[in-house]
């Protein structure tokens, strides 16, 4: 599939979510079976409900290690999502992001949402 040396499975994929939960799917709207191309109008998007709100808990008050502290928990080849603002750098474990999907954070005085 992907010729990554680090293994396909650990790569970061932000957009496929909540698939770990083996629950029944309840549709909010009428199911559409037509196969015509969809308009790119958001009103045309069918929203389905898979889990209760906050069943996957966002991280709202994140805590941080220094790089040397993080070495105890982060393997060298572990995937992270990194961001830099005004010279301030932060890294977030992709594993943790997979479990929580959102981190509400502030960096260099700027409110950010780290999303997965």
């Amino acid at each position: 599939m992907v010729a990554s040396k680090n293994g396909v499975l650990m790569i970061a994929f932000g957009i496929i979510l909540a698939s770990c939960a083996p629950v029944a799917i309840e549709t909010d709207g009428a199911a559409s079976s037509d196969s015509k191309p969809r308009a790119s109008d958001e009103n045309d998007y069918r929203i389905i409900t898979l889990l209760p709100k906050d069943a996957i808990p966002s991280i709202d008050n994140p805590k941080f290690y220094s790089a040397s502290e993080a070495d105890d928990e982060y393997a060298p080849d572990e995937m992270v999502l990194g961001v830099v603002f005004d010279g301030e750098a932060r890294a977030y474990s992709v594993n943790m992001l997979s479990s929580h999907e959102i981190v509400n954070d502030n960096i260099a005085g700027r409110p950010i949402a780290v999303t997965w």
Binding site: A55, N104, T115
Partner: peptide, 13 residues
């Protein structure tokens, strides 16, 4: 502040 709604649009959060 954002949370996970538990809803999906075409498989995306």
């Amino acid at each position: 502040e954002f949370g996970v709604s538990g809803k999906l649009i075409m498989n995306v959060m």
